[in-house]
Simulated assay, not measured.
Amino acid sequence: MSPRPSLASRLAAAAGTAPAPPPVSQEPPAAIADKAPSPIAKARQGKTMIAGYFSQDMARAIKMLAVERGVTVQALIGEGLDAVLRQHQRHPFGER
């Protein structure tokens, strides 16, 4: 099975012209990766994401509470995780 033709090659065939070949880099992929580090927001450096899937009703309720209190959803999640840690006699981190 051959790969699907690119849109550029299909348009060129319809126009009756040969498609231009894709640009070829002279540098090995590792050198390219070294040049462009992925940008990470300062607030996220040294941190990791904790996520979960919840119902739409739960998401809506949390977002509304965040707006009512004038805080972010992340702050509410941090508050909730701190409460769970305290409940299990663990030191809360107070991250918001």
Rank of each mutant, 00 (worst) to 15 (best):
L65A: 11
T72C: 08
G78V: 07
R86C: 01
P92M: 04
P22K: 08
R60P: 00
E27F: 08
F54C: 00
K42L: 09
F54W: 00
A51I: 01
Q87A: 10
Q26W: 08
A43W: 12
P3G: 15
L85I: 01
A43R: 14
M49S: 06
P37D: 03
D82W: 07
D34C: 02
M58N: 10
P29L: 08
A20K: 00
L85F: 08
R69A: 05
A14T: 05
A12T: 02
G16K: 00
A20M: 02
V24N: 01
G52L: 15
A43F: 12
A83G: 03
P21A: 12
R96M: 07
Q56L: 14
F54K: 00
E79I: 02
R69Q: 14
V84P: 00
L7C: 01
L81F: 14
S9G: 12
Q56W: 13
S38E: 02
A30W: 04
A31V: 10
L81T: 02
A36G: 00
P39C: 02
V84E: 08
L11F: 06
P29D: 08
D34S: 10
L81H: 03
L76K: 05
V71E: 02
I50T: 14
S9A: 15
E95Q: 10
R90V: 03
L81P: 00
Y53F: 07
M58W: 12
A43T: 15
L11P: 00
A8D: 10
P29Y: 06
A31H: 10
R69Y: 12
E27Q: 04
A59P: 00
A66I: 11
M49V: 15
M64W: 11
P92D: 05
G94L: 04
P28F: 01
R90D: 07
S38V: 10
L76H: 04
M64F: 14
G80K: 09
Q74G: 13
A75V: 13
P37Q: 13
R96T: 15
I40M: 09
A20H: 00
E79P: 01
L76W: 13
Q45T: 12
P39T: 07
L76E: 10
E27Y: 11
L76F: 11
Q26T: 11
R69I: 06
K47L: 13
Q74T: 13
M1S: 15
L65S: 10
S6P: 00
A8Q: 10
K42F: 11
A30I: 08
L11K: 03
A75I: 05
R44A: 14
G80I: 04
G16T: 03
A83K: 11
T48S: 14
G46Q: 11
L81V: 09
A20F: 05
Y53S: 02
G80L: 09
Q87K: 04
G94I: 05
L76P: 05
P19M: 08
I40F: 02
A12C: 05
A51L: 02
I40W: 03
A14I: 01
D57F: 09
R60K: 15
P39L: 06
E68W: 04
K47G: 02
E27V: 05
Q89K: 13
